[in-house]
Design a binder for these strands. Structure first.
Lengths: 126, 126
DNA sequence: CAGCATCCGTGGAGATACTG
DNA sequence: CAGTATCTCCACGGATGCTG
């Protein structure tokens, strides 16, 4: 079953009671987390920058998602005592390591976007 | 900002209007898709095998998720004319390539599971 | 500026029962 | 066995208004 015409390996992923992949997807597979991580992967952002940078996100969801990311140790939040207030968000070391597997997914998505699109159209015409 | 004490690169992910990563997460970041893909990554499964193999999934969600995976060209469905009926599901070539970035995520999750756990406890005690 | 509080609509997902 | 068909519920997320 692994004998195909490609040289793509067949990684074995744990699927028992709690699959590690699903664990992170539960915390990063939501609507906004990855977008935020991507933006912060480029540089430090303050709250309003993220709000403007992520199209369609509400203030509420930005707040909630950031809080979750901070809680999980993926993002650092630093409040600058100043008037007006200024809060900076940046990836932690841990968050930066997450960029690696994410970019792998990104490359896959970019490479096979059209394949999926084609498969879907094929399916829908039936 | 990329100058840290690790040798982890800083991949730049597209975050514009439609980020490719988010696109697949929309289709594979749901509750069951990845689990199914993981199982099928090991070998062909029939419907009832998947149902038993994935703890907690309902017949309904298994059906719906499989249909979506088939539609996107990640899974092949073959009906064997027999009594009782028998339907086999297996990864397509495209689906098998997806295992690669998924296993990257899996490795990250496995490696940093405890880090996240620790960060969360630290956060909650405050 | 950077949030928090509140209300509310939607659809993702579970439970159950039925069928080719 | 491998699904469909309904009903239902709740959590995700949007909109709006208010504060240190």
């Amino acid at each position: 079953m692994s004998a195909t015409n490609t040289n793509v390996p067949d990684p074995i992923l744990a699927t028992d009671d709690e699959c590690p992949v699903r664990e992170i997807l539960d915390r990063v597979g939501d609507k906004w987390s990855v977008l935020i991580v991507c933006l912060l992967g480029r540089r430090v952002h303050r709250f309003s920058e993220l709000h403007r940078g992520i199209d369609g996100i509400s203030q509420r969801m930005l707040t909630l998602t950031l809080r979750a990311l901070v809680r999980d140790g993926l993002v650092d939040r630093t409040v600058h005592a100043a008037v007006p207030p200024r809060v900076d968000y940046e990836l932690t070391e841990l968050g930066r390591t997450l960029l690696v597997p994410l970019s792998a997914l990104d490359q896959w998505a970019t490479a096979h976007r059209s394949d999926i699109q084609a498969a879907r159209e094929r399916y829908d015409n039936a």
